[in-house]
């Protein structure tokens, strides 16, 4: 089932002459995991904002085309309704947290929607468990590490049980171990709940083998949209400055001398398997 449909979307922030995104056409299926790549200023954040209604509800500007989420036209749907379908997590988790305890933060949006107490309790438990931070429920969000804070932000979105979750550079302020743990959390949630996920992120090493699809943007337009292997292997992506996982470059380098990889690996594990299989076949 299609969960997001973007048709001929162009958006120009007020005060600017050139559009931040131009003529975007896009369809995202339920359960799809999409990685959004492109240099800073290419329009990734703007596109993310269009998916959850921040554009046009909070950012002034000129919008053409339309965005449908779960069949609803985003520009005609109030954001409190949209928030139950699209959840968004930003770069800096601290900006998204404000309550005295983690539990309250996760419950906040649910209370605002006027949900019954039992339902709120059930959903808070569910969200904390899904993200793996049940032990933090009574803590203050502000005494947590950046990685833990980001998990609280994810849990508070998850509690709304959205159909699609949008992440705008969720790991950029985190250390590598926390970043890996956030990406794994997102992947786990996506797998277990079937939520669609869109992530704008530069750390391709952590994501290449997990996403279903990679969309590359450049100067406000989509210049490539395909399976990760196809996008990362493609030579035409080099001038766009698309970051390529190191294993891809390693495999291409090795393949120039020995035809080890029929399929270019996207993770250390896949690389290892390729080498072992090759040696095994040769020795035999």
């Amino acid at each position: 089932m299609e969960i997001v449909r973007v048709e001929g979307l162009t958006f120009t922030y007020s005060g600017f002459d050139t559009p931040a995104i131009s003529d975007i056409n896009l369809s995202i299926e339920e359960g799809e995991f999409v990685l959004l790549l492109g240099p800073s200023g290419c329009g990734k954040s703007t596109l993310c904002r269009c998916l959850n209604g921040l554009i046009p509800h909070f950012y002034a500007g000129k919008m053409e085309g339309r965005v449908l989420v779960a069949g609803m036209d985003v520009s005609k749907t109030p954001t409190y309704v949209l928030s139950q379908y699209v959840g968004m997590v930003f770069q800096n988790p601290e900006n998204q947290l404000f309550s005295l305890t983690v539990e309250n933060d996760v419950a906040f949006a649910l209370e605002n929607l006027g949900m019954p107490r039992d339902e709120i309790r059930r959903r808070v438990d569910f969200a904390l468990k899904a993200v793996g931070i049940e032990d933090l429920r009574k803590r203050s969000p502000f005494e947590l590490s950046g990685g833990q804070q980001q998990k609280v932000a994810i849990a508070s979105i998850l509690a709304l049980m959205p159909k699609i979750m949008v992440f705008d550079e969720p790991t950029s302020s985190l250390d590598p171990v926390s970043a890996k743990s956030i990406i794994e959390t997102i992947f786990k949630v996506k797998k277990e709940l079937g939520t669609s996920v869109v992530v704008a992120e530069h750390r391709v090493e952590l994501l290449a083998d997990k996403v279903d699809r990679v969309i590359v943007m450049q100067k406000g337009r989509i210049v490539k949209d395909g399976r990760p292997r196809e996008v990362f292997v493609s030579e035409e992506m080099i001038p766009y400055g698309v970051p390529v996982p190191k294993v891809v470059s390693m495999a291409k380098g090795v393949n120039r001398h020995f035809k080890v990889f029929n399929e270019i690996p996207l993770s250390s594990e896949e690389f290892e398997q390729g080498i072992r299989r090759f040696i095994h076949d040769k020795v035999r």
């Binding site: 250390d175 590598p176 171990v177 926390s178 890996k180 090493e205 996982p245 190191k246 294993v247 390693m250 250390s268 594990e269 690389f271 290892e272 080498i275 072992r276 040696i279």
Partner: peptide
């Protein structure tokens, strides 16, 4: 590295898996 929340770069992580060969 992991004792201070850092991961090996991908090249090193990959090569360390192949050390036994």
């Amino acid at each position: 590295l992991s004792s201070c929340s850092i991961l090996m770069p991908q090249v090193a992580a990959t090569m360390s898996r192949l050390a036994d060969l």
